[in-house]
Each structure stands twice: as C-alpha cells, then as structure tokens.
C-alpha cells in the first residue's frame, strides 16, 4: 500500500539528517507500529506522509502512485491525528467535528453521516454539546481520533494517541484503533508505550537517528531461535558461568544468557547455587519488545 524508498531528509541548518535512506513497505490493512526514541525521525516521517514536509530525496508512493499525486487525487486519503489536542477548545464536540468535516470539503449529507459515525465510533454521544475545553483527557483523545476519521481515510497516521489518558480510556482507544483495519483503514501508529504496540500492531519498524534498525512482523521480530534467559542476581555473575552461557549485561546485576535448550536451565540454576548466587528474577522465553527496542537503540538518554 505505502512504499517508502530511499527517503532521506535533512532540516535546514541541521548538522545531521533526520532520515537517512529509509525504505519501508507498509501493507494495506493492519496496524503498523513506528518506534524509535526521541529524535529518531518518527515525526519527520509522519510529517512527510501527512504532506507537511516535501520529500527532497527518495520516493514515497501510495497504491503505486506518487504520494503528492495520490493526495491530489484524494485529499482525504491520508489523515493525521497529531499528538496535540488539535481542535478548538471553545467549540463543542459537535461543532469541532462539523468544522473539520467542512474543512475536508465534505458535502452536507456526507458531513452529517460521517460526523455521526465518528461520534458513535469514539463514543462521544454524551458530550456532543460540551465544549472541548471542558472534556477530560480521555475524551479529548477520543475527539482527536474522531476528527481524524472524518474523511474515511485509507491511511491514518496516529502520533502518540494515548498520551496522558487513564487506563480505561487507553484500553478503549487501543481497542478502537485495533478495529480500524476492519473498516478499511491502515494505521501507522507511533508510541513510546511498547506494550501498546505489542497489543495492537502486526508489523513494526524501529528507527533511530534517522536509520532503520529493524522492520518486519512483530512475531518474527520477537521470535528468538534459541531460548533467551534473563536473570537478576544478588551478586555479580561468576565469570566462568558468564563465559559458558555467552552472558551479556542488561543492567545492574542483570544478565541475558543463551541456553542451548530449556533443559539446560536446571543445570545453570545448580551452578548458580553452587556459586552462592541467589536468583531474584528470572525470565525465560522470547524477549519482549521493550527489551528488543532497548537492545537496538541502546540505553543512552535522548533529548
């Protein structure tokens, strides 16, 4: 559906490029997770897709059509739901939806139908007459999402759509977003909440410093050919054990070890007991997304 090929982007006066030779294929349907630490280039990529920035190098095509042509042919094909509450606080929920529907150029019949559909989808029926400035954080997020759905976009760009909401609203939003592909909308989802991405995304891309670090189906990325063991001990791992199990440090007294089979676990535990090491925490199996992400992007703090 969306093909990004060799896209590079450098902001004016920037010392390093925001994106470097980025190539991604995003299939139609599904929720695609776009991950990266702050400054990785996610917002730049979203801005390019939303038409807020022009593509200087590389190609972006939607349904095999250059992005600019696709947008010109159908201006409602791509919708952006920014991280900010990008609506009018002094307008009511219904007025906001009608305004943005009108700004999309919807005819009056479509406007009514799509406004109603968006209200129903985001469960905003009880607050349509309420001014946006009086809504709770969760309701504001739902309104922000509802506005993005007004033009029935083929591609919806969601930038951190659950920031600052309570767990109930977050679950509602995640369920709603996960259901969007069934209605024919492909979603590109950026978030710093890895558990959210694991919960709703089928494919992900991890970028950092403008470069693609990993891309593919989430199950493939998280699958490990050999069991990975993560340990937290009460003291440092003895060197001989560390060498035997190809241990790598994860943090303070935390280690990742490779086991040839799950049967090797009992042998390792015996060796640790013999070395007077107490296991405080143990995790055996596939690595989770957060661990994978941290391993790829390293632990150094970002701006």
């Amino acid at each position: 559906m969306l093909h990004i090929e060799g896209v590079s982007y450098r902001y004016r006066d920037a010392t390093s490029p925001a994106l470097t030779d980025l190539t991604l294929n995003i299939p139609a349907g599904g929720v695609y997770g776009l991950l990266g630490p702050n400054g990785a280039g996610k917002t730049t990529l979203i801005s390019l897709l939303a038409g807020l920035l022009k593509t200087p190098t590389g190609k972006i095509s939607l349904h095999d059509q250059p992005l600019a042509d696709a947008r010109a042919a159908n201006p409602r094909a791509i919708a952006l739901v920014p991280q900010d509450y990008a609506f009018y606080p002094m307008l009511t929920v219904a007025e906001n939806l009608r305004f943005f529907g009108g700004a999309l150029g919807l005819s009056s019949a479509d406007l009514k139908a799509q406004t109603d559909a968006a209200i129903t989808f985001a469960r905003l029926e009880q607050v349509t007459a309420k001014r946006a400035e009086q809504l709770s954080g969760g309701l504001r997020r739902r309104l922000n999402l509802a506005i993005g759905l007004l033009g029935q976009p083929q591609l919806l760009l969601l930038d951190e759509p659950t920031v600052g909401v309570d767990p109930q609203s977050r679950h509602f939003l995640l369920d709603a977003i996960a259901a969007l592909p069934e209605a024919g909308t492909t979603v590109i989802y950026t978030s710093h909440y890895m558990e959210e991405v694991e919960a709703i995304c089928q494919r992900i891309a991890i970028i950092d410093q403008g470069k693609l670090l990993a891309e593919g189906a989430l199950t493939d990325i998280l699958h490990s050919p050999e069991p990975q063991l993560e340990l937290q001990l009460d003291q440092a791992l003895p060197e001989d054990i560390a060498k035997r199990y190809a241990a790598s440090p994860l943090g303070h007294l935390q280690y990742r070890l490779s086991l040839t089979s799950t049967a090797a676990l009992s042998k390792l535990l015996d060796e640790l007991a013999a070395a007077n090491c107490t296991v405080r925490h143990l995790n055996l199996g596939q690595h989770d997304l957060e661990q994978f992400f941290m391993r790829l992007t390293k632990r150094s703090l970002r701006d």
């Binding site: 038409g51 201006p75 919708a79 952006l80 991280q83 009018y88």
Partner: peptide, 17 residues
Amino acid sequence: IIERQQGTLQRLRAMGL
C-alpha cells in the same frame, strides 16, 4: 495562536487547506 500552538493549523494543512 491557539491554532498554531495546539497543532490545529498543522492539522488543517495536513487536510490540504
């Protein structure tokens, strides 16, 4: 300024206005 600070202008631009 509310439109600019809250990203509404950006959203309108993304809508092709």
